[in-house]
Design a binder for these strands. Structure first.
Length: 274
DNA sequence: CGGGCGGCCTGGAGGC
DNA sequence: TGCCTCCAGGCCGCCC
């Protein structure tokens, strides 16, 4: 579920509530996630340390701790990270939990178990295999039309696949790739080799705009997503094409169509996207 | 070598 | 009601 806006909403809602909190203990009920949870390593790096900051890189949440350690959380497709009272009953798919001082528990729940939980020294984040290859952060002012055009030099595939390749641009998943392309009026199957600088600029602008809009509305909740206190996002009502096959385009007289690209559903309007 | 597909997992929806 | 198939926001590895 979670693309950049959802992880950013999680960061924004979690940060003021857990800054300064100390992680007293860790429970791992089911460590069988996308990568097995290394309990020993996690405990050694995390236990007894206070939280000093929260950052986001791509769709990863970085929870910085005292003395050069960072707890990394990835939500996969169905993950949630929420605060609960220490004695709250364990949820069905609650796999990992961090007991905080002040009688609270930071719980990681993930139905499909595509998520990740691990820890490593803060100073090693940049070179870690999960992060070293990641591309441009769209919300840092790094994403420009010129930059996109340069990144696409020598590439051949459809623009939608290009946008979802985290080695180039991070944080844009299936929903926001569809929505940004619709806002930019660009057909998702168009080859990146056939996009003018003007259209790259339009696209860069629309990506940033769409992500900001989604964050402002608490992210998109299709099934699972919630912020740190369990609140669903309501950007779903603003989706113009995603999940709307057969229904009218929000902007013209067209009808939204669904196709499959690289094994993923793509939604677009054949009338206003070229 | 880069792009695309299958697989990882559970569960919800829809067809019959 | 049940059983089947398809589908889902991410990501990696393998294949061509």
């Amino acid at each position: 579920m979670p693309e950049l806006p959802e992880v950013e909403v999680l960061r924004l809602t979690l940060e003021p509530r857990i800054i300064g909190a100390r992680i007293e203990d860790i429970q791992v009920w089911n460590g069988d996630l996308r990568e097995p949870v290394d309990r020993r390593n996690l405990s050694r790096r995390v236990r007894g340390r206070s939280i000093v900051g929260l950052r986001r890189r791509s769709k990863y949440l970085w929870i910085d701790l005292e003395r050069d350690q960072t707890l990394v959380i990835h939500l996969g497709m169905s993950g949630r990270l929420t605060l609960a009272p220490a004695d709250a009953e364990r949820e069905i798919h609650e796999h990992v939990a961090f007991s905080l001082d002040s009688n609270r528990r930071l719980r990681f729940c993930d139905t499909r178990r595509f998520g990740l939980v691990f820890a490593l020294p803060t100073s090693e984040l940049d070179t870690d295999r999960h992060f070293a290859h990641l591309g441009v952060e769209p919300l840092n002012g790094e994403l420009t039309g010129e930059g996109l055009q340069e990144l696409a030099t020598g590439c051949r595939g459809p623009v939608k696949n290009f946008l979802m390749d985290a080695r180039r641009v991070v944080g844009v998943g299936n929903i926001y790739a569809c929505e940004a392309l619709h806002r930019a009026g660009i057909h998702p199957t168009r080859s990146v080799a056939r996009i003018s600088l003007q259209r790259w600029q339009q696209l860069a602008h629309r990506i940033v705009e769409t992500l900001h809009d989604a964050i402002a509305q608490g992210g998109t909740t299709l099934n699972d997503f919630s912020d740190a206190v369990g609140q669903a996002g309501y950007f779903k009502v603003s989706l113009a094409v995603y999940g709307r096959a057969g229904r009218p385009c929000q902007r013209c007289a067209g009808t939204v169509r669904r196709i499959v690209q690289a094994g993923r559903s793509t939604f677009y309007c054949p009338l206003c996207q070229h």
